[in-house]
């Protein structure tokens, strides 16, 4: 995964994680629906999405959670362990539409962001608590959440 391994001692409350950019377009949105086997038409059918009060098909909340899992597991490295993660789907996101069969139009790029809010030791394990979220192209956190991870210790 990463050449670099973060250790519990390297991290302080307030430490920010390097943001992870993400783009979702109509094609990747459908790819996601197929990959999880959850075929809710809200994620791909215009008319149904509108009947649910949306402007069009929306980005599946679980995809944004999977982005956050990627973001956190990438940061904790091979020796870290993700114990808990949660998020709220507060704001709706819409995938970019397609310019060509494979290329999205210009538009929004989302960022996974996070910072350390707590650190503690319990038994043998060295815990870090993170405040995380997916920020949309306008800088609004549509998907706030938190995570608890265990990092290796130098001790």
């Amino acid at each position: 995964m990463l050449g670099h391994q973060v250790f519990w001692e390297d991290v302080e409350v307030g430490t920010k994680l390097p943001p992870l950019p993400k783009i979702v377009d109509s094609v990747t949105a459908v790819k996601w629906v197929g990959a999880i086997g959850g075929f809710n038409p809200l994620m791909y059918e215009e008319e149904f999405a509108k009947s649910q009060g949306m402007k069009g098909p929306i980005v599946h909340g679980l995809l944004k959670l999977a982005w956050l899992v990627h973001f956190v597991t990438n940061w904790i490295g091979d020796e870290g362990t993700l114990k808990k993660i949660s998020c709220e789907y507060r704001g709706v996101d819409y995938p970019r539409r397609m310019k060509t069969m494979t290329e999205p139009q210009d538009g929004e790029t989302w960022f996974c962001k996070g910072k350390v809010t707590d650190k503690y030791v319990n038994g043998e394990d060295h815990f870090i608590v993170l405040e995380i979220g997916v920020e949309n192209g306008s800088g609004v956190v549509t998907t706030p959440g938190d995570a608890v991870v265990v990092l290796p210790s130098r001790g």
């Binding site: 993400k22 990747t28 790819k31 996601w32 197929g34 990959a35 999880i36 995809l63 999977a66 982005w67 899992v69 990627h70 597991t73 990438n74």
Partner: peptide, 8 residues
């Protein structure tokens, strides 16, 4: 396929 779709 799941990891691909999540971009991981």
């Amino acid at each position: 396929r799941y990891a691909d779709a999540a971009g991981d």
